[in-house]
Design a protein around this nucleic acid. Structure first.
Length: 419
RNA sequence: GGCAGGUUGCCCGAGUGGCCAAAGGGAGCGGUCUGUAAAACCGUCGGCUUCGCCUACGUAGGUUCGAACCCUACACCUGCCA
């Protein structure tokens, strides 16, 4: 067995592969050029995409050469979803997203050395292609009867599927063939939900070029209850710091369940096996320390954001959740906490009620919910429980810098700043 | 095209003239316990100027002192027959 494949297997990153032995031999034989695609369906990539990037990093570390494909053309078409037809995004919007995603994914690979990464955009070879050439050189290799049997398509026959989405698989297959012919790419990786699209490319290359190429798919990450990992109450966990703050990002991983934290650590942390096994042991023997959760949150935040952002997130969290007295915090640390939570200004001369403060800081959705929180004993000002629903904030509540921290429950925190 | 049934809060689902902001379950949220985990238990779960008022039971009208509940039209969905 090949060393990288071994590692990926141990990390739980392999759900499917075409002919594992042949792939192992191929990887052993020398540097392999491989590719993974990212479609611009949003202005940022998310945690699911990060899993793919972790695979890419592992392969590049092992000496293989990554091609990161940004789907400038496939993003204009849309991969068929299980449930319903996608809305087409405007061309200029997709073009914008292509640029943002290109910049995001580039941070995860090395562009130095023998096996330097390369970023490609399928728009470059799809856009100039004529319909006649497409139908003759690609379409001819796709039996419709087989396409109809694919799970996604079969599921959509009742609810309906447009010709556009039906054809998506041809474009992705064409990508693989183009990269095979142009760069000698012989491996495509992706999520297991992409398996059908990936193997279709393998098949196309076999039919039209008579070559045997490979594929690898990662499993879908789940929570202990079987639901998808990567969503919070407020939605998807994005990599863009504007969309998911580094603090929220760090918190998301810190709150990983005991039952799953080691699985996540294997995927998102590049620590060696012994260290992860040690952390697994610590999770068993002294779970309250949450050593694995801390390692996970720190490692991923370091990788996706920066060491500075991670340190700021940890400092903010320890201020909010720590035992220390808020008033004794250094003013600078407090400013940092407020920045992480989002700054909301109020007039120092007319300080609001606690109810209004909870709403203004975004900690609760309505005044009714704010009152309820107080009645339930789940509302706090500067870490002190509030019991009077009529209570007003006063100048005595202001921390250095004019800040007030409000909290609902254990971990929903917001800040107001009096100016 | 004909016949029958349905459309209720985030989701499922009861309610057939006043006692309905609407039973029950799930999800969510808060509390207790803990470790900013999980489970369990208790509470909560439209909004507001909060002991009261406003908006809500597919859409638009109507009957009535009063309608989620009755009538009319429309839209959509589901069965059965052609």
């Amino acid at each position: 067995m090949n060393a990288v494949l071994d590692e990926l297997t141990w990390r739980g990153l392999i759900a499917n592969s075409t002919d594992p032995e042949a792939l192992a031999a191929h990887l052993d034989a020398g540097p392999v050029t491989f590719y993974v695609g990212f479609d611009p369906t949003a202005p940022s990539i998310h945690m699911g995409n990060l899993v793919q990037l972790m695979v890419v990093r592992a392969l590049q570390r092992a000496g293989h050469r990554p091609l990161l494909l940004v789907g400038g053309s496939t993003g204009l078409i849309g991969d068929p979803k299980e449930t319903s037809e996608r809305l087409l995004n405007p061309r200029d919007v997709v073009a914008q997203w292509v640029e943002r995603i290109r910049a995001q994914v580039s941070r995860f690979v090395s562009f130095e050395g023998e096996n330097a990464a390369r970023v490609v955009n399928n728009y470059d070879w799809t856009e100039p292609l004529s319909t006649i050439d497409f139908l003759r050189d690609v379409g001819k290799h796709f039996p419709v009867n087989r396409m109809l049997g694919r799970e996604v398509v079969a599921n959509r026959l009742e609810s309906g599927i447009s010709y556009t989405e039906f054809s998506y698989v041809l474009l992705q297959s064409l990508d693989y063939r183009h990269l095979f012919r142009t760069y000698g790419c012989t491996l495509e990786t992706g999520g297991s939900d992409q398996w059908g699209n990936i193997t279709a490319g393998v098949e196309l290359i076999r039919r039209s070029d008579g070559a045997h190429v490979h594929a690898l798919a990662t499993p879908l990450l789940t929570k202990a209850d079987g639901t998808k990992f990567g969503k919070t109450e407020s939605g998807t966990v994005w990599l863009d710091p504007e969309m998911t703050s580094p603090y929220a990002f760090h918190q998301f991983f810190l709150n990983a369940e005991d039952a799953k934290v080691i699985d996540y650590l294997k995927v998102f942390s590049e620590r060696p096996r012994e260290e992860i096994e040690q952390l697994a042991e610590l999770t068993r023997t002294e779970p309250h320390r949450r050593a694995a959760q801390r390692a996970l949150a720190d490692d991923v935040t370091d990788l996706v954001h920066s060491v500075e952002e991670r340190e700021a997130a940890v400092a903010a969290a320890s201020a909010i959740f720590g035992r220390g007295e808020l008033r004794e915090l250094a003013p600078r640390a407090l400013d940092g906490v407020v920045a992480e939570l989002g700054r909301h200004e109020v007039a120092a001369v007319a300080l609001p009620s606690v109810v209004d403060a909870l709403v203004l800081s975004g900690v609760v959705p309505s005044k009714s919910a704010a009152r309820r929180a107080i009645e339930e004993g789940g509302a706090y000002v500067n870490n002190e429980k509030v019991t009077d629903p009529e209570r007003m904030l006063s100048s005595g509540d202001l921390l250095p810098g004019g800040h007030v921290l409000v909290r609902r429950g254990r971990r929903t925190v917001g800040a107001l700043t009096a100016v």
